[in-house]
Write a protein that binds this DNA or RNA. Structure first.
Lengths: 278, 278
DNA sequence: GTATCTTTGTGCACGCGTTCACAAGGGCAT
DNA sequence: ATGCCCTTGTGAACGCGTGCACAAAGATAC
């Protein structure tokens, strides 16, 4: 998942919990599919199954929006689609700019999921003069100089950053200065923004690293469960050699020593050395 | 953030909280940057700033890994990089396959962030016979028929799905059957997997919809704060016409009526109609 | 009109995650 | 060696999110 990031005290005013907001698009997608199959009503149990969540959670989520169900029957699909769309703000048209038209930016520009839900790409922007003028996804790529103009002329409030990490903060600053107040950031960098600006981050590398963590633990479980040592002298759970062979992984070499002369917590227990990634 | 998804009771065994695991890659990135600048030590305050989190949270996160800091001084950068890398499993080599080499799949294949942290793309797979044989990011695209072979020969345990939604579940099933136990899913669909398989979802459309929700609320705040009505008859917070003009948005038309003959909760209060997205 | 059945909506309790605030601990100056 | 100062590590309190379990409410059959 893209990593969440708070920003405001939470969800204020009408007080729809952030966790619920994050699930609404999921429900909406499932409901849209039902709508296309002309299914008139759906129970919380069915819909929860389609969305991959617990039915109690779904009912509680909907209860924040109001009482849109009918006891003994379920929810009216069309009506619920409308209510959720409205709640999410999808009944409006949201002009979007994408900055950084590399592989990822081009992929985003071509992504059909945007247009289908009220999002309209109105500008593709790149710093490379070579790209300016090229056609991508039916739009002409503009040079960075045009960023402010495009944002202001189209009343853009949502910007997508798909530049390299080094350029992200600068692009972000310019977007914000031009009037953008919501940013979807694909660059692997932490963005500093003023109050009132929302940033959501999607980081492919982080997602993979989280998967690797769980994968490593799974591998460790298949081996004998080591007794837990006490007192901060942590015994690392290393995937045993058998697992490494089984799945064809290879460990690398080199390992920094503990900086001070203090006790090396890995002493004797960590037989699988490593080097830090670039 | 990419939307999280639980699956197992939480983080078991050595008990590093899931939320902490999700932040470790963030710390690692900041530490790597410091390492490249040859900074020897860093305080929790500095590092927290660079990672965009609270310093108390950072210290608590690190406390789950062990006592790696020095009071009065801070943390040794190199040593911490190593410890986090090891904890995340990045000291191993993780072969990865990417299925679905469209715009997004190609972008992922070219993404440098993979290789730099122990992830090695060993297979690009697509169902389109046209693509088979083409070179993408220095690798030859293989046809879907080869999926099982590539997974087994390389001992792949992490798979990336970048196919259209319709193909995702089938691809997922085949990956799992072939031995993959961690999946990063970019397709907008809910994947059903057996126990023991981890799925993380990255959904661009959902991220945008969450931004739209907050953006809509921001617009609503600038107008007069409506008094909250009681009794489930929810008065929608509609961005007033002034805001729409200011930012150049346009509302669409059409709105489903409430299914039963019951009270229309929007009666008189919701002047901004809408249509559901495709 | 009454009884029964189905499904919603929610009160409540529990657990995870965050934050505060401070004691413990190590360096450094004197 | 001693005392001061700085930063870590963590106990405790709080708040959010989840899931259970059930009462409320509408539909349906008779």
């Amino acid at each position: 998942m893209a990593t969440g990031r708070p920003h405001r005290p939470a969800t204020r005013s009408r007080g729809i919990p952030e966790a619920t907001v994050a699930r609404l698009p999921l429900y909406l997608r499932a409901l849209t599919a039902l709508s296309e199959r002309s299914v008139p009503t759906v129970s919380s149990e069915e819909l929860a199954g389609a969305a991959g969540v617990n039915s109690a959670k779904l009912r509680k989520d909907f209860s924040y929006l109001g009482s849109y169900g009918t006891r003994g029957v379920g929810y009216d699909v069309e009506y619920l689609v409308y209510q959720i769309s409205r709640e999410l703000g999808l009944t409006q048209d949201w002009p979007v700019v994408i900055v950084g038209i590399g592989n990822l930016g081009a992929a985003l520009a071509n992504y059909g999921g945007f247009a289908s839900r009220g999002f309209r790409v109105v500008g593709l922007i790149d710093a490379d003069p070579e790209l300016a003028g090229r056609q991508v996804a039916g739009l002409t790529v503009l040079h960075s100089d045009e960023l402010e103009r495009v944002v202001e002329e189209n009343g853009v409030s949502i910007g997508v950053i798909a530049t390299p990490a080094g350029a992200a903060q600068q692009v972000c600053d310019r977007l914000v200065a031009a009037g953008v107040s919501s940013i979807l950031n694909f660059a692997p960098s932490v963005l500093a923004v003023p109050d009132g600006v929302d940033v959501r981050k999607v980081d492919l590398s982080i997602e993979l690293q989280i998967l690797a963590f769980h994968e490593q633990r799974k591998a460790g479980e298949n081996a004998a469960a080591l007794p837990e040592p006490e007192n901060g002298e942590v015994t690392p759970v290393e995937p045993p050699a058998t697992a490494a062979v089984t799945r064809g992984r290879t460990d690398r070499e080199g390992q920094p020593a503990r900086p001070d002369g203090g006790p090396d917590s890995d002493g004797g227990t960590d037989s699988a050395p490593a080097v830090m990634p670039a």
